[in-house]
Structures are given as C-alpha cells and as structure tokens.
Design a protein around this nucleic acid. Structure first.
Lengths: 142, 142
DNA sequence: CTAAGTGCAAAATGTTTGCATACTT
DNA sequence: AAGTATGCAAACATTTTGCACTTAG
C-alpha cells in the first residue's frame, strides 16, 4: 500500500524544476499559474499544460498536495510535509472575502481526522484540509 | 448587525421561483446549472446569468449558502438551515475521488467553530463547511 | 420615475485534451 | 525501440460582464 502503484517516474528536466521550486518554497502554496510565472521569471519556462500535468502526477505519487481554495480561485499546490498518516496535519483557513489562506496547527484539530474516520468512516486528506470563513480583519469590517 | 445591510430585495418572479425551488429541496444542494435545468424542465426557465446573480444575492442576504465542492466541480447551493450563529452547524465531507458530498452533524464538530474563533480569530462560515478526503467506499478500493 | 433585476451573447478564468515532437529508460 | 513527457493551440466548463430592455417599488 506504499509504493505499489508508483512505477518510478521519468526524471525529466521539467519535473526537476517544478520539484525543486516546491522544495525551495516548502510550506508555501502556489497555483499552477503562479508556479509557471515564477519559473518564467527565472528563465525556466515550462508549458502550462506540463505544469498542470506534473502537479497532478506529484499529487498521485503523494509528494505534493492540492488545496482547493474555493470557486473562482485556482487550486494551490505545495509539497507534502510529512509522510503517511503519522505526522501532524495542518489545516488551512480560507477567507471567503479576501481569499487569504492561513495555515494553522493546533491540538484540537489534531483530533479532528481520527474523529471523522472513527465516527463517520471518512478519511480526511492527510495534509491539506480547508475550512472556509472570514479572517479576523475581514470579519471586523463586515 | 442583523438587518442593516439588507435593503429589502425586489421580489421578482425569478427570485420567487428560485427561492421556492430551494425551499422545496431543503437539505439538498444543487449547482447553478442544475437549478437552471430543473427549472427549465418544469417550464420555469430562467437565464443562466440570473440564476448566478440570484444565488449570490441570496447568499449575501444570508438565506442561501454556497458549497465549494472542489475544483472542476461547480459550487453547490442550498438554503441555510438555521439563522444566525446560534443553531447547530453542519459539515460536509467531500470525497476527492467520487465527488460525493456527505452531510454530517456531530457534537465534536459543534465545538470546532467556537474553537477556531477563540484560538485562531477566524469566523467559520455558519452553515457550510467542507472537509476533503475519501469516503468509506472510495478509501476501500484505493 | 428610478433603481434594480433580467436575458442574451460575449468575455474571462482555470483546467484539460489532441497531437506531433522530444526525451528517458 | 518502447513508453512517457512536453508544448502548443484548441477545447471545455463554470462563472462573470456589458448592454439594452423589463419590472418592482
């Protein structure tokens, strides 16, 4: 259940570039377009389609994960931080108003995934969970 | 903080149609296109743009809420179930694989929103919160 | 009468796909 | 040599916008 379906991917230049970008930006999340722009800036342009395809591949290998930031906004990607279910998870709070994405870790939330699995039979994504609402500053100017 | 910005909306035929569709389907969620199709079937066609605009309006009035079902999939809409922050919330589990949307209520989750507000200064959407992962059946055939 | 809502068609956005070419193994 | 990955441009799906027209207050 660990490496069975990962038939060692081709190591292409584009894969290396994307992977090293994400590694360098560990802990941050970027949309496919942002990634492609950043790479272009540094003269390592990669075709749009390839960026999407590579990210998807990295996700299916369990190396990267995708954050659904809400309709309209593009999905964001980042490297997975820990492997398997063991490590701590982190959650993301997405502000419906400003679109801001905050990354939090706390012990209450640590128990969320085990609870959902035990009580509701649903396996939460190990790395990227998103909750929607309003961030502090947006909720004060409502 | 309750009715201040709701300047009693125009009651148009289209608004009435959409609202009564959602009322009739209380507890279920539909994408804008589904709503528009359903209405067309029963001879109450409404322009696409109007459906989107009305739903958005209902959301801003706090009558309907939008569920971000994940990239690719369209947003879904449903009538809010309770008013204000007082009532119980419910959460949605969205399966990354089959796209299924399960609706759960439980006491552990009841405490989630107060926790997030108190500890992280973030106000979760009162009605629609979505967690991503794999549902029971999809996680067993992984 | 005025402000707001409607419908259509056109644009915008993010993502995917087809296909010929190039690269990895 | 066989199997993948790439890049481009075209296709897609969902949502938004511009604008002339209608309707509610």
């Amino acid at each position: 259940m660990k490496t069975e379906k990962n038939k060692s991917p081709y190591v292409t230049k584009q894969r290396r570039i994307i992977l090293s970008f994400l590694e360098e930006q560990r802990g941050r999340h970027y949309s496919a377009l942002e990634i492609s722009d950043r790479l272009k800036e540094r003269g390592e342009s990669i075709g749009q389609a390839t960026v999407y395809r590579s990210l998807e591949k990295l996700e299916s290998e369990g190396l990267a994960c995708r954050l659904y930031s809400g309709e309209g906004q593009p999905a964001c990607w980042m490297l997975c931080e820990k492997d398997g279910d063991a490590g701590e998870r982190h959650y993301h709070l997405v502000c419906r108003k400003c679109g801001g994405l905050t990354h939090i870790e706390c012990e209450y939330l640590e128990k969320l995934a085990p609870h959902i699995l035990a009580e509701h039979g649903f396996t939460l994504d190990p790395f990227c969970n998103v909750l929607y609402g309003l961030c502090r500053s947006c909720s004060s100017d409502e």
